[in-house]
Design a protein around this nucleic acid. Sequence first.
DNA 1: ATCCAGTCTGAAACTTGTTCTAGATTAGCG
DNA 2: CGCTAATCTAGAACAAGTTTCAGACTGGAT
Lengths: 209, 209
Amino acid sequence: MTAEAKPASPPLTERQEARRRRILHASAQLAGRGGFEAVQMREVAEEAGVALGTLYRYFPSKIHLLVATMQDQLQHMHTTLHKRPPAGQDPAQRVADTLMRAFRALQREPHLADAMVRALTFADRSVSPEVDTVSRITTAIILDAMGLEHPTPEQLSAVRVIEHTWHSALITWLSGRASIAQVKIDIDTVCRLIDVTRPDAAKTDPTKP
Amino acid sequence: MTAEAKPASPPLTERQEARRRRILHASAQLAGRGGFEAVQMREVAEEAGVALGTLYRYFPSKIHLLVATMQDQLQHMHTTLHKRPPAGQDPAQRVADTLMRAFRALQREPHLADAMVRALTFADRSVSPEVDTVSRITTAIILDAMGLEHPTPEQLSAVRVIEHTWHSALITWLSGRASIAQVKIDIDTVCRLIDVTRPDAAKTDPTKP
DNA sequence: ATCCAGTCTGAAACTTGTTCTAGATTAGCG
DNA sequence: CGCTAATCTAGAACAAGTTTCAGACTGGAT
């Protein structure tokens, strides 16, 4: 367990917490059918039983809302994955397993995945803190799968690259430019970096043997 | 030289070609200051001396327009890179060099880069063919840098992962969540895959030695 | 030169994200 | 309880992407 996002700037009252939850639920619901464009702010507000202005007070833009939705979903996934940790022998395999499992979970709700991922990559600087939170949770998931207590800087770099690949591969799949098989290959390929960056890995780069 | 996008469905007249060019120029111009949101369809149309409806006939959406703009710019970059090929010893180094050079080129016009990359990753299925063209050009650039005649399937996978990393790292930089130094590290890290997937690479994955 | 089909223009209309405002409600506090 | 500040609601208004349409224009075939 690493980062779990609890800024809690002004502590919300119970009713407010409930409103927030209704909004996120409506967002996920609408995203579930229809994807990104089906999440229309007016509809979210109505579905959540909240005025449009209130929706905007809670989430200052559609992107903020969807990124928050992603945080929420990722958190679920993180705890779910915790219950059944990957079984693989070596770290690379476990990470690949975990990511493919997450991937299959997203596959079950492709529209929702579409909305969340599109929002995530479209987010501009004003959403950086929230996007960063998502990134931290993702990192935590990967590190959990690796099962290492003290990853080296090199390994952290590998994790970063894995995250990059994960996001980008997800996008190419969502936009229909890559098959699931292709995604698996990409994930497996990038996970090799985990082996390569093992502290005790025999150096394989003679450059001039 | 690999893929250069010449569908030329209906061959355009000279005036039409000129219009198309004016539109792309206006798009790049406006993107250059202001980024994604500064590219407003009405303004592009006016700047290009074309009616709004015409703009939409040439590019059916803002995303299409910006992705086409990216194609255009990438093509430039590809030919530019061709003139001064990277000097590094081994393929991994040459690829990393090339990508960082491209990266520095984008740094000179961060707003333009922002507009193009945001459009690229936000594109939905209706833009797949155009996005695919961008991807092919990128692949061509990387393969050129590797300088291999017949890359193995493994190496092609590595190239795919490098592309993923490139795009995603670009996004994190553009949204201010990563420094240039961080991007360089990520690029260097992922380029290791080129060595790992060398046909003659000594296997480094004993899993259980 | 004439005519047809396709293209371009200008302007209005429509959609959806976002902002704003005036009045009702709620929460915390003395 | 009664007050005050913050919050919430309903609805209008605004901004920018997209669509639509009637009429002018162009290019090519007869």
